[in-house]
Amino acid sequence: MVGIGYRKDFAEEFSENTLNPAFIEVAPENWINVGGYYKKMFDKILEKYPLFVHGLSLSVGSPEGIDVAFVKQVKQFLDETKAVEYSEHLSFSKCENAHLFDLLPIPFTEDAVKNVSKNIRQVQDILERKIAIEIVSYYTPIAPEISEIDFINSIVSEADCNLLLDVNNVYVNGFNHQYNPKEFIPKLDLSKVKYIHMAGHTKVASDLIIDTHGENIIDPVYDLFQFTMELMQRDVPILLERDFNIPELEVLQHEMDRLQIIKTNALKQHKHAIIS
């Protein structure tokens, strides 16, 4: 199934059934303790679509630990909306008790692995469910001591959490840090991938891509997605993210359709391979 990030920018058009996603995804930060016009619309949408929740401010990489009161609010939101999944970012967005509202890279170090894993475990204990953690795009490492792949795999293992594989982020990171995404993805523990994100990005320099979610998905990222699905040989929910520069909704529908076709074909090919 292929879903879409639900945004107020296209909420009115969306309510007229101009898109046909299998599910929707929202950030809890945009809806907790919120009412009014858009909330009423959102509540109606929830009657029709399963909800995936993707957080922004949990900050599992924070040196000072997690905000327990906030996690409890998230739990209430997950319960109220009967959310299917809750995912967050492998990054920090809060430091010295101050929110920065962006996804900052955590140092790839052993002690950061311990800190992040402890934070994720605490979140999972409060939520009474496993969370999926997203590999974020980054534009510079911070004082790295271990490899990115070891950092991610160690956390997923130590925290006993799931993985949200953002294929576009792996593409962006491969480009920005000169590695081959097709060599990176097989090194992940793919059995832990619970959910996949797909999005567009913006190339701002000859050697730098920013993960903007503001453009259409480019062919090499579709190709990497196909590679991933063929490798995983397992059906997981796919989400199309589009946060800025939102086109006509039929363009988004076309992207969702293309993702579904790629996934179906990748899994079908596998079945054929088994039979033959």
Binding site: P63, F92, C95, A98, D102, L104, T109, A112, Y139, A143
Partner: peptide, 29 residues
């Protein structure tokens, strides 16, 4: 679980994002 060194690098990085004042951090592009 976080060492003082890692704590300091994260704090320096966050402070740079807030203030634009950069204290050198190893490995940064």
């Amino acid at each position: 679980p976080l060492s003082l060194k890692t704590f300091q690098y994260q704090t320096d990085f966050a402070n740079y994002c807030k203030t634009g004042i950069y204290n050198e951090i190893p490995g940064v592009i």
